[in-house]
């Protein structure tokens, strides 16, 4: 149940928030990881459960910065 709610929140983010953010910040393609972090989060939550899934997604978002390869 919680899983489904979380995943549909991410769906809404992907559909609307993501393009709003891109417009505000002026970026078209901003992901260098593939699949995108939000897609990854959906898969991770689905596969590994809420806690582990969220933790893995957080680590992944944080790893997208200039100091890692």
């Amino acid at each position: 149940m919680m899983k489904k709610i979380l995943i549909s929140i991410i769906d809404v983010y992907q559909a609307f928030m993501s393009s709003i953010l891109k417009n505000i910040l002026g970026v078209n393609k901003m992901c260098r990881l593939s699949p995108t972090c939000s897609e990854y989060a959906k898969i991770a939550i689905n596969k590994e459960g809420i806690l582990r899934g969220l933790r893995k997604s957080a680590i992944r978002i944080l790893s997208c910065q200039p100091f890692t390869n």
């Binding site: 953010l21 910040l25 970026v27 901003m30 992901c31 260098r32 972090c37 978002i61 997208c64 910065q65 200039p66 890692t68 390869n69």
Partner: peptide
């Protein structure tokens, strides 16, 4: 592409 970017600036 790699070193300069990432989504940290956005965040």
């Amino acid at each position: 592409i790699n070193p300069a970017a990432g989504c940290l600036p956005v965040l």
